[in-house]
């Protein structure tokens, strides 16, 4: 069900602001929605819309050049705050497949990987330069196979990524399935040992 990530090309929206937390990405009141799909309209909702429902004209995702942008160039600590995965689902619902930032909220970053969204961490100066390119509406290409971000007319910018995570993204692997297949026996062995060391953690099942 996860869309593999190999290469993504298109416009990049710049949101050069630090500490854009998950409440900004996905306001809490929409957490009442229990679906994973169709959350795009709520991404950055309170930044995109005035209280009366009209669009905030100068917000980047409301401008014609970036309405469909598949890439987001963000500020440091993007996605900090709560663990809500809706933040990633909403970005994905808007068509964003890749976020580039100097740093990320940890849980948000892990959630990206689990949903086929590539979070790229680059040094602040490089992100600032990409942000400037994004504002000029230059074409971006993010290539996970080659591990590089390329802005039209410029040299590719290499990035690093955990090899396991890269493989999972390239293949669109569901983490649970991978884990159960590869480690079913390990888990069983561990449980036996764990039960001997801390039997009280298993009592509910033993009593039943």
């Amino acid at each position: 069900m996860i869309q593999p990530f190999v290469r993504v090309a298109g416009a990049a929206a710049a949101l050069p602001e630090e500490n854009v937390d998950t409440d900004i990405i996905y306001p809490a009141r929409f957490l009442l929605i229990t679906a994973r799909l169709g959350l795009g309209p709520y991404a950055f909702h309170d930044r995109r819309f005035h209280a009366d429902g009209s669009e905030v004209a100068d917000f980047v995702f409301n401008q014609p050049a970036w309405r469909e942008a598949p890439i987001l160039v963000a500020g440091a600590n993007f996605g900090s705050g709560s663990s809500r995965e809706q933040a990633v689902w909403a970005l994905l619902g808007r068509g964003i497949r890749c976020v580039i930032a100097p740093s990320f909220g940890e849980i948000f970053q892990a959630n990206c990987h689990r949903n086929g969204v590539l979070p790229i961490t680059l040094p602040p100066e490089q992100v600032a330069a990409l942000s400037a390119d994004a504002v000029e509406a230059r074409a971006f290409e993010v290539d996970l196979e080659a591990q590089a971000v390329t802005v039209a007319g410029k040299a590719p910018l290499p990035f690093t990524i955990d090899p396991e995570r890269r493989r999972a993204l390239l293949n669109g692997w569901d983490e649970t399935a991978t884990l159960l297949n590869a480690h079913g026996a390990d888990i069983e062995t561990f449980e036996g040992r764990h039960r001997r060391l801390q039997p009280w953690l298993f009592d509910a099942e033993t009593d039943a």
Partner: peptide, 18 residues
Amino acid sequence: FGIGASECGTVMAAQCLK
């Protein structure tokens, strides 16, 4: 520690997390 919703699914099925 706090985890995301997909991770909750993994814990339910595998009792483990990476």
